[in-house]
Computed example of a mutant assay.
Amino acid sequence: MKNALIAAAVTLTLAVPGVAFAQNAQSGAAAGAATGAVGGAIVGGPIGAAVGGVTGAIVGGTLSQSDSTRVHQYVVQQRRPSVTYREKVVVGEPLPQTVELYPVPADVGVQTQYRYSVINDRTVLVDPQTRRIVQVIE
C-alpha cells in the first residue's frame, strides 16, 4: 500500500510541472502548491506536505522574464514611493500591513492575482492574502 502511494505521488510530481508551464501565473501557483505538497508528503509526512505546498505555491507563481519586464516598466512609470524596510527583501517573507500593495492592471498585459509594492527601491510581487513576497523583480 505504501509503495503504491509513493508511486502515485511520484507520478503526480513528475506530471504537474509540465502542466504548470502551459498555465498562467495564477494556476502555476496552484500547480506548484500541489507538486510541493506531494513531494513534501513523501519526504516528511503531513508536516512536509504543508511546507512543500507553501514553497511550491511561491515558486509556481512567479512571472516569466518578459512579464517581469512589463511589470517593472509599469511600476517605474507609476512612480510609487519606495518603502524603507529593515528586514531582508526575499521570496517567502511576509510584509507588514503598513506596506501598501498596488494591483497590476490588465492593460499591462500580465494576468496575475498578485499585487506589487516598491521596497528598498526594488519591485516585489506579493500575495495579497498572505502578504508574502512571491517574486523580486530586478
Score class of each variant (00 low, 15 high):
24 N>H: 07
65 Q>A: 15
24 N>C: 00
104 V>D: 02
24 N>S: 13
33 A>Q: 08
37 A>C: 12
19 V>G: 05
119 I>W: 00
106 A>W: 06
13 T>A: 13
117 S>Y: 01
103 P>S: 08
43 V>S: 12
121 D>P: 01
49 A>M: 14
126 V>S: 01
73 Q>G: 07
115 R>M: 08
40 G>M: 11
2 K>R: 10
79 R>N: 14
77 Q>H: 09
92 G>C: 04
90 V>I: 14
104 V>H: 03
82 S>F: 11
121 D>M: 05
4 A>V: 08
80 R>A: 11
16 V>L: 15
2 K>M: 08
124 V>C: 04
116 Y>F: 12
57 A>Y: 11
109 G>A: 09
98 T>W: 00
14 L>W: 00
28 G>Y: 08
68 S>W: 06
138 E>F: 02
138 E>D: 15
108 V>I: 14
45 G>L: 10
11 T>S: 14
87 E>C: 08
131 R>M: 04
99 V>C: 01
93 E>M: 09
123 T>C: 09
85 Y>P: 02
112 T>V: 09
109 G>K: 07
35 T>H: 00
109 G>F: 06
14 L>Y: 09
126 V>M: 03
63 L>T: 05
6 I>R: 12
41 A>E: 09
24 N>M: 09
55 T>L: 15
75 V>W: 03
102 Y>R: 03
13 T>N: 02
127 D>N: 15
47 I>S: 15
32 G>R: 05
75 V>S: 05
122 R>S: 12
26 Q>Y: 10
83 V>K: 02
19 V>M: 15
138 E>A: 13
45 G>N: 14
73 Q>P: 00
100 E>A: 14
